[in-house]
Design a protein around this nucleic acid. Structure first.
Lengths: 236, 236
DNA sequence: CGTTCATTTGAATCTAGTCAATTCAGGTGG
DNA sequence: CCACCTGAATTGACTAGATTCAAATGAACG
C-alpha cells in the first residue's frame, strides 16, 4: 500500500494505541474511516449463527484495513486487534467523490482492494481444495512472505502472535486438528517451532505441496507500492 | 456494474460470440482487457497440482470480468465459458493512468473489484465454516438474488446451467456429495428441481440455516449500478 | 441406436471434528 | 518463592461428515 498518499493527502489523521482483543470495525455498523495498522496484528472475521467464526484475513504491520467496510452501508465483517497495535485513522467521507478530487488517493484505495481480493482468492482455495496439511503449510508461507516484505522476518525464521485457535478459524479447521497438523509438519522436518517463532525448514517442499506461488502477493501492475519496493531494493 | 461507463468511454470495443467450454483468460499469461459478459455464464477457476479445481466465482449475464487479471503481471486465475456467451472486449492499456484520465471509468472498475471481493469473502465462509447442506443452500440463494437483479428469474424460480460438478468445485465438495445434498434439500422441502430449473420453496428457512444476508450483494455505497437500479425500479 | 456426459445410488473408507482429560506457561497474590 | 488460576497447547478415543470407488440409470446428440 502506498501509505504516503493516504497520510499526506489528509490532514485529519488521528493516531491511537489499541490493546489486544478490541474491535475496531464492527460488523453491521456503518464505517467511514480507513485505518493504517503500524505495528500490530488484526483479524477480519465474521461469526455465524451457530457460533463458529471464520477469519477472512489477517492484517499485518504496515497494512491498510477498513476500506471494504467503507464501501457498504453496513460493514460486512468485524475487525479486531490480535495484539496491541498503533493505528492511524483516516476519515474518508464522500468516497464517491474521491475519484474526481483525488486520483492519487483513489489509486491507492484501488490497489488496496485489488491486493486484498487476491489474498481472499487464495484463502478460498485453502478452505475449498487443500487438505489440512496443505492449508497450514500455505498459510505459513503466505505470512512469511508478507512479513518478509516489511522486513519483519529473519532469513528463514519469523514469529507470529497467533494462537492455534486463530489459525484454525482462518483455515476452516478445528484447534485440535491444527495442533496435530503442526506436529505432522514438524515431524516431517518441513518446519520447526519454538513457542510462537517458526522456522521454515524446507521452503521448496512446502511450496510444492501446498501449490504456493507468491505472485499473488506481489507482481501487481502499477501498484505504487511496487515502485517503493523496487527503489528500496536498489538502495539496499 | 455501470456498463455504460465501460462501453461509451472506449471506442475500441469488440463484441464476439463464444462457445461453451472456452478459456477467455488463461492463468499465468498476461491479460490487458476487461470483458463484459452479455448473456452467458462463465467461471473463474484454478487447477491445483493434484488436479483438483476450485471455482472462485461464477460470472453471470451483465457482469464484468477479467479485471483482476489485468492488475497482475500474469493472471492468477483462468476464466472459461460454461455456456455459449457473447462477450465485449475492452482494451485497458495503461491501467495506471486511468485514474487521472478517466475518473468515471476508474470508479466503475473500483466498484467492480469491491463487489467481487465481497462475494469472495462469502465464498470463503462457505468453504471454511459451512456444512455441505448450508453451502449448497447459500450458493443457490446467492445465485438467485444475483440473477434476480438482472431480471433473469421468476418469482421463486430460476434456471442455472451448472452441472453438479461445477457446483462441487465452487463449494469445495465432491460431485457425489452435492448430489446427495441437493436430494436432502428437496426431501426437506426447501427447494424443488426439475432438470436445471430450481424453485426456492422456502427462502426464509434457507436464509436462516445458511446465514444468508443479501447485503453483501448490494448496499454498495455510491455504486453507480445502484443508481441505475434505483432508476429502473422507479420506471417499472 | 450407440456414444457421451451427467445424475443417482450404495458401500467402504478416511479426514477432520467432537468430547474429554492432561500438560504447560505466564501472571497473580499470599 | 510457591500455590493457584487462566488460557493455550497436547494427546487419546470415538464419531461423523465427506470422499472414494464402483456401478447403474438417464438424457442429449449425431
Amino acid at each position: 500500500m502506498d501509505q504516503s498518499a493516504l497520510l499526506s493527502a489528509h490532514a485529519r489523521v488521528r493516531s491511537s494505541k489499541l490493546q489486544k482483543g478490541r474491535d475496531v470495525v464492527i460488523s453491521g455498523s456503518h464505517n467511514d474511516c480507513v485505518y493504517l495498522n503500524h505495528d500490530g496484528w488484526l483479524a477480519r472475521y465474521k461469526i455465524l449463527h451457530k457460533g463458529s467464526r471464520q477469519i477472512i484475513d489477517f492484517i499485518l504491520p504496515g497494512e491498510v484495513f477498513g476500506l471494504p467496510a467503507c464501501l457498504f452501508q453496513r460493514a460486512l465483517y468485524s475487525v479486531a486487534t490480535i495484539t496491541d497495535a498503533t493505528v492511524s485513522t483516516i476519515p474518508l467521507d464522500m468516497i464517491d467523490n474521491v475519484f474526481e478530487k483525488d486520483p492519487a488517493l483513489a489509486k491507492t484505495l484501488f490497489w488496496s482492494i485489488a491486493h486484498e481480493a487476491a489474498i481472499l482468492g487464495e484463502h478460498l482455495i485453502d478452505a475449498g481444495r487443500r487438505s489440512a496439511y496443505e492449508r497450514v503449510a500455505h498459510l505459513l508461507l503466505e505470512l512469511f512472505v508478507r512479513l518478509k516484505r516489511v522486513r519483519l522476518t529473519g532469513e528463514r525464521t519469523f514469529s507470529i502472535p497467533l494462537t492455534q485457535e486463530l489459525i484454525a478459524d482462518a483455515l476452516g479447521l478445528t484447534t485440535v486438528h491444527v495442533n496435530r497438523t503442526l506436529r505432522a509438519l514438524r515431524d516431517d522436518k518441513l518446519i520447526a517451532m519454538d513457542g510462537r517463532s517458526i522456522v521454515i525448514v524446507d521452503f521448496e517442499a512446502l511450496s510444492l505441496l501446498s501449490d504456493f506461488e507468491k505472485s499473488y502477493l506481489s507482481e501487481l501492475y502499477g501498484d505504487p507500492a511496487q515502485g517503493a519496493r523496487a527503489k528500496r531494493s536498489i538502495l539496499s
